[in-house]
Amino acid sequence: MIRVEDLCYNYNAKSKSSISALKNINFTLKNSTIMGIIGKTGSGKSTLAQLLCGLLSPTHGKIFLNEKEIIKDFKNTKEICFNVTMAFQYPENQLFEKTVYDEIAFGPRNKGISESKIKDIVFEVIKFTNISENMLKCSPIFLSGGEKRKCAIASVMALKSKVLILDEPTAGLDCKSKSQLMNSIFEYHRKEKNILIIISHNMEETARICDKVLVLDEGIQLMFDSPVKVFKNYQKLEKLNLDVPQTSQIMRYINNEYPINTDIMFPKEAEEEILKILNSKGVER
């Protein structure tokens, strides 16, 4: 369980050029849930992620992981990262090992796991991220952008921490890889039953897999609720330059002309709903 209490963070807190990046964030996440963080550029999403990992220490407020306070109740950053870890926004420039295998094994090795077990872990996570086995011997530097991304995500998955934070994991990937990667992340979560926190600008993805959505605006927590309830507030979201899933937009347009359930966010459900209405009107398939 993660509990965040009254969390504030200022960059350069002591100097005059202090920037307040987060103000009074409060939320609680139960075990094995997926949380999405949305908000426009510069709203403090990445800052929040780094605070949760203990890379930044809060200016004010506290973060608890299973009743242990992050930073204070842990020995060092190493111990924190075995509990909470993250993949950074654009992680491509941060690969450093000689081969993809070593890159993925870096975390488990630091954890002190035996080589034979590490091998199992590596082969497990590359299955989740669709990395082919013969890529393991390549140098990560010469992979394509998307392959590097997968490699970076696989390497944090290999840590098997209780909380995994992914900062815009699918930004800049093509449409199919996006949904593939998202599905594999979801698979991984189902198997590990960890807490997954995903920062994303893709509302479809967020609506599809998240149990809870946190909306940030200029460092202020606007909403923290289930996706259905959050995306119902489309007027608020549109004011923040955020979209809602396209299906729910269509349902809203239809609702202007004809009463229909506007809580629907996915094409499949929308199809069923529309067919139901058509059937009730006696229209044949």
């Binding site: 890379l55 950053t77 190493k78 990262c81 870890t85 630091n110 954890k111």
Partner: peptide, 18 residues
């Protein structure tokens, strides 16, 4: 700045800087 980012990326994967 880049060095700082790389250090962070490795810290979250358990590198022994401390």
């Amino acid at each position: 700045e880049e060095t700082y980012k790389i250090i962070n990326a490795q810290k979250v994967r358990g590198a022994h800087f401390d």
